[in-house]
Design a protein around this nucleic acid. Structure first.
Length: 507
DNA sequence: AATCACGTCAACCGCTTAATC
DNA sequence: TGATTAAGCGGTTGACGTGAT
């Protein structure tokens, strides 16, 4: 494969044929000149697009095919729009990003005349601006739209399919609000989980999630957007190591990550941040189950004490798996070999969980064991847990009541578990989710149950000041962004706990 | 006027995916 | 079916312009 990368050529400079013999020819790099543009345009006129590697041979242009293609695609091809984005375009970009994440090319396909590079640059600068201004990543408008549309559609579905526990895709919601927006496919999957945001209300909360896990939206049954923006994907801009903005955004704009709780019936409370699993956040080849957020920090932003997963867990982070015992969070330093991307993370998780499950400090009971032992274990759990702590009990009760209308077997169905599918999902999405189901089931089959609870977690003895900064910020932002502002900080922090059979889909 | 910080943009780079043999 | 090649994609970098100090 011909490659432009590496090797000679320097600093935007021109490096022509080298050596007298001319045996080594390096390609020019850096900005294109008008003359080069003209050559390329002429070439494309003659030969058409494609076969870019032939450009150099046939035209004498000292540019690699890759470079030619980029130049053509981004600057020379006809019908390119130049100039700043119109308000409509900006709106579409935001909506598309909410749906697709950093799929710039796919976004560009929805914006005629715009290139992926343009959109990417726009988004990144926009993110910087919003970060600096302390604004949410996605405007309130987008959230409200989705919430409103969700309400309508939910009502509609309730009449038509009262048993259907699924929610409309955000893309369809957005489309319903914006006729100009015509997404290629519905990319959202949905799930519901019992809300612990406000145990007093016992309201079911729905959550949107797109298959890339780039963000999620939470709604309670009053159609209040109770939470928003949950970057979960390693490919998401806010989850990239180089994009430092992610941290502030996550900390200031996001809800606490949803966690799911496992009740084994023997005094174990398993609560772990699903997002912390998904974000994976391989930094220094470590997965931090405990922090969720900290691993995404660029190294320069990671406080020394948070630089390692173990320590970050105790000092901050969204949520951590754990029980209510005094087990030290440091017991859960997990350092699998990872790859970027969810699947790699899952592999690593499975791998590591296998190790951990064989460790004698765990009781050896796996998630799936629990799952199979009692589908209704949460409902069946007795007061022995309630002595544990009030908050967690409330959370459990909240979920219990919120799901009172559902049967146990219904909740334990594949649809209500990880990778829940909707009946109208696109095949490709279903495939992805099937695959993810397998991965996750493998994970669950091997995952140890005995997890330490971070000190800041509600119900533990540590005061709220030890909670991660993100929670405080999220609380503050939550009050701005939703009508659930009355909820206490602790209660908000506990939002998202859900039972295993109602946990968020990852797909 | 010099310097710095910041924003914008174009291009590069490495990786993945698709197509072809 | 596997290897090779081409194309595409997304993250990152660096140059340049502009405004503030």
């Amino acid at each position: 494969m011909v490659s432009c990368s590496g090797g000679a050529g320097s600093e935007g400079g021109v490096s022509g044929p080298r050596g007298i013999g001319g045996t080594i020819q390096s390609l020019k790099k850096g900005p294109w000149t008008a003359a080069e543009d003209a050559i390329l345009i002429e070439y494309v006129k003659k030969h058409g697009e494609g076969n870019w590697n032939a450009v150099q041979k046939n035209s004498g242009l000292m540019r690699c095919g890759k470079s030619c293609r980029l130049r053509w695609a981004n600057h020379l091809r006809p019908n390119l729009k130049k100039g700043s984005f119109s308000p409509d375009e900006e709106k579409i970009i935001i909506e598309l990003h909410a749906k697709l994440g950093n799929k710039w090319a796919r976004m560009a396909a929805q914006l005629p005349g715009r290139t992926d590079n343009e959109i990417k640059n726009y988004w990144n600068t926009r993110m910087k601006r919003r970060q600096r201004a302390g604004l949410p990543i996605y405007p309130q408008e987008i959230q409200e739209k989705a919430a409103a549309a969700f309400h309508l559609q939910q009502q509609h579905q309730h009449h038509r399919r009262p048993q259907n526990n699924t929610s409309p895709s955000l893309s369809s919601l957005l489309a319903s609000q914006n006729p100009a927006y015509n997404p290629p496919v519905s990319m959202f999957t949905t799930f519901n989980y019992s809300s612990a945001a406000n145990p007093l209300q016992n309201q079911a909360t729905s959550c949107y999630s797109n298959p890339d896990n780039q963000f999620q939206l939470y709604f309670d049954t009053n159609n209040t957007t109770t939470g928003f923006s949950l970057p979960l994907s390693s490919t998401h801009p806010y989850a990239t190591s180089s994009t430092s903005m992610l941290n502030q955004n996550m900390q200031t704009q996001t809800m606490p990550m949803p966690s799911f709780k496992f009740n084994s019936g023997n005094n174990f409370q398993r609560d772990m941040s699903f997002s912390s699993m998904i974000t994976g956040a391989s930094v220094d080849n470590q997965i931090d189950f405990a922090s969720g957020l900290a691993p995404e920090l660029p190294s320069s932003q990671i406080p020394p004490q948070q630089a390692t997963p173990a320590s970050s867990g105790s000092s901050g982070g969204v949520c951590a798996m754990g029980n209510s015992s005094n087990t030290n969070i440091n017991d859960f330093q997990i350092s699998p070999k990872t790859t970027s991307g969810n699947s790699g993370l899952l592999d690593a998780l499975v791998q590591e969980s296998q190790k951990l499950s064989s460790n004698e400090k765990f009781n050896g009971e796996s998630f799936s064991d629990v799952a199979h032992k009692g589908k209704c274990v949460a409902d069946a759990s007795s007061g022995e847990e309630e002595g544990n702590d009030g908050v967690e009990s409330k959370m459990i009760n909240s979920g219990r009541e919120a799901n009172a209308d559902k049967q146990c077997d219904e909740r334990s169905s594949s649809q209500s578990s990880i990778g829940m599918k909707t009946s109208n999902q696109e095949p490709e999405l279903s495939d992805e989710m099937n695959s993810m189901d397998d991965d996750l089931m493998s994970l669950l089959n091997n995952f140890p149950l005995s997890m330490p609870l971070p000190e800041w977690y509600p119900g533990t003895s540590v005061d709220a000041s030890n909670r991660p900064p993100s929670s405080a910020n999220a609380d503050a932002n939550q009050q701005n962004a939703s009508s659930t502002s009355a909820a206490s900080a602790d209660l908000q922090w506990s939002l998202g706990s859900c039972r295993w059979n109602n946990m968020p889909s990852i797909c």
